[in-house]
Design a protein around this nucleic acid. Structure first.
Lengths: 293, 293
DNA sequence: CACGCCGATCAGTATTGCTTATCAAGTATT
DNA sequence: AATACTTGATAAGCAATACTGATCGGCGTG
């Protein structure tokens, strides 16, 4: 299974068309057709149906692996480049929405004082995008947040050989409308809320799936999905009674919303710093500042 | 980076010789030389020193990725085969030493009753070998044991897309010579034993590294390493005063050795069942039996 | 010191991989 | 319903490549 075959396979599968994939990859349609034929004969099975073009069951399985393999190859390239290449003149890093905020701001002002000339840019992206970007060398550093047991690492998409270090950790809180029966409680167990209506906001809060795994029940029902990344919006949805959400305990909530710390299960909201090999003194410096901040 | 280049790169790096790698892979020495040259020019850096042949720093980095990439490709092949191929007439599974024992025996007798004709073989191997074997399709099922926090999965070598399920879980105990000061204690914290002498027996007990991570200290010193897989031998080493070891709480200990349950940190010894796509009814049946047992 | 072993390099050949051209089948248009 | 267009498969030809075999130079070893 040569990598260029895999590459065209994912291109075809994701575009749903041989010709489109050919255009993407700067091949002729004929070449793409031959690539797929080669893959299929090498594996001894059909991977795609034609008209319409869609993965067969075997193709689905391969697809799951193919992306990861290609990503890992990118990561390897990037890793080697880091050992060899010139240290970059600019630092680019990425964070998930909840990981950024004050910590980043503080680190950046410190960095500005110690290294006034340095160019820094940062982007906000989803968790897996941050991990992928750092692995492939697109970002020098990444900051991701998520929910896990106190002494365990976050579960990141399998991306290979990233170094991580915990940067901050705090408890969780359930946010509820101010007039909700549990609004005044000092502390509560998530298990008591399995029958509540939840807002699934994976970009901002904990993905509901993570919570389900932690509570060991299947019964957390999402009443509403929110794909955005803005905490204020989420809190307004909560205030309006669309459902409950879990956030880090330190979020400040507006009037109309109450915050109740989660006592059990023992879970924390953790921010982790991601990097490959650190390539430049500047990147290490920033990493250190983020680590302390 | 084509996969055959990576393949010869790891072959050369692991054999320390271009010619030997060529013989391994059924190439001429010339071809191997050209492969390495191609890789190096594609990455723009030397990957190996010659005479002696050894990885450069960049080569080391690549090597770490290359093995994982090739393994993942094998895993992809195996996964596709499972969707397509004939269900196997024989089941082969692997377990780590501590995962096997009674659970396996019980499941096998049950299986014998329900499916008398079925051929089953199993092997005992190290944790990473089991994981690799299951991923690459060499084994249909795997049983691995290890130490983790109560609700968290074992940390397995990155092998891609294996399904796991917890099969059994129990507390830990420190085994000490019967005349050791703590021998009578009902329960103890590992932190109290950071200065003790330990036996590092990764095949049988928890690898010392895992414990260090859990206790969050660097100070667990190994007085002796034991690479074998036999629990009895390990217990005799303990009895003879060569050091302490951590084992699952249920191990039965001979005279001369005392067993003290570990109270903190909260850790468990867990056995997990590993499989890819289950390919045959027989394999699923065995998986189910192991899962219950 | 000389021999042997190892890796690099060169030239030749066989294979592979890509393109162009053509075809068959399905889809959209009128 | 008939026609034109789009899409993927296939065949033939050509160019790039990947491998082999032979040779050379250098380093370590007896």
């Amino acid at each position: 299974m040569e990598t260029h075959l895999l590459r065209t396979f994912v291109a075809v599968a994701s575009s749903g068309s041989f010709s489109a994939a050919a255009a993407d990859l700067d091949y002729t349609q004929s070449a793409v057709s031959q690539h797929i034929a080669a893959l299929e004969s090498s594996l001894g099975t059909a991977l795609l149906t034609r008209r319409p073009v869609a993965p067969t069951p075997a193709g689905e399985r391969l697809l799951e692996h193919a992306g990861a393999i290609l990503l890992r190859i990118e990561a390897a390239r990037a890793d080697v480049r880091r050992v060899v290449g010139e240290p970059p003149g600019e630092i680019v890093f990425a964070t998930t929405p909840l990981a950024a905020a004050t910590r980043v701001a503080r680190a950046l002002t410190q960095l500005r004082q110690t290294r006034p000339g340095l160019a820094v840019t940062f982007e906000v992206a989803r968790r897996d995008e941050v991990a992928r970007g750092v692995a492939s060398g697109a970002y020098h550093l990444g900051l991701v947040d998520g929910i896990a047991a106190p002494s365990d690492p976050l579960r990141l998409p399998d991306v290979g050989l990233l170094r991580t270090s915990a940067v901050a950790q705090e408890g969780l809180a359930v946010v509820v409308p101010a007039d909700h029966p549990i609004a005044g409680r000092k502390r509560l167990g998530l298990a008591a809320l399995v029958d509540a209506r939840w807002i699934d906001a994976p970009a901002v809060s904990a993905p509901l799936d993570d919570l389900r795994a932690a509570v060991e029940t299947d019964s957390l029902r999402a009443a509403l999905g929110y794909a955005g990344a803005d905490v204020r919006t989420l809190l307004e949805l909560v205030a309006a009674g669309h459902g409950l959400a879990v956030l880090p305990a330190s979020v400040s909530v507006p009037a109309g919303v109450a915050k109740v710390p989660v006592g059990s299960p023992r879970l924390v909201h953790r921010v982790e710093l991601l990097h490959g090999q650190l390539d430049s003194a500047a990147a290490s410096a920033l990493a250190e500042l983020l680590d302390e901040g």
